[in-house]
């Protein structure tokens, strides 16, 4: 249900398509999990190194959620993996396609233990029927 970020075309390698980082933009794809209940979709996103809730941006549509978050400081790797280049990361970014339509207006978000949790109420209406 997530939309992988596009890597820069200069990499030119299909095997990088699943990478969770973009060294050109200094951006990491966060780990995430989506839980669906009868009434809501719960989206949790792991964003270590983000300190303040003010540094997080959440944009919702009926079908998607886009998370952007700035890290407290730039994380620099002198030799990033087998890539062996200096890499600097300073933000997270990911757009999720949601499994059901949601009502963005009544959605809630909280940030605790470096995890962002979104509770997104489904737009679908539910009716209770009395059993005679």
């Amino acid at each position: 249900m997530s939309v992988p970020r596009k890597l820069p075309t200069d990499s030119g390698s299909e095997w990088l398509a699943g990478a969770m980082w973009d060294h050109v933009e200094g951006c990491l794809e966060p780990l995430s999990e989506i839980q669906e209940t009868e009434l809501e979709i719960i989206l949790r996103v792991d964003i270590p190194c983000v300190k303040r809730k003010e540094d997080i941006s959440v944009k919702l549509t009926e079908d998607s959620a886009t998370i952007e978050a700035e890290m407290e400081k730039v994380i620099q790797y002198e030799k990033w993996g087998t890539f062996q280049r200096q890499a600097r990361f300073f933000r997270y970014s990911k757009t999720f396609l949601l499994p059901s339509k949601i009502d963005p207006e009544f959605s809630k978000a909280r940030f605790k233990n470096k995890v962002l949790e979104l509770r997104l109420p489904k737009k679908e209406r539910h009716f209770t029927v009395n059993v005679d």
């Binding site: 792991d46 270590p48 190194c49 994380i75 470096k114």
Partner: peptide, 14 residues
């Protein structure tokens, strides 16, 4: 080192 570990272990976790 919790946050550093969480960042570095993302791919293995996935």
């Amino acid at each position: 080192r919790s946050e550093e570990i969480r960042m570095n272990a993302r791919e293995l976790m996935r």
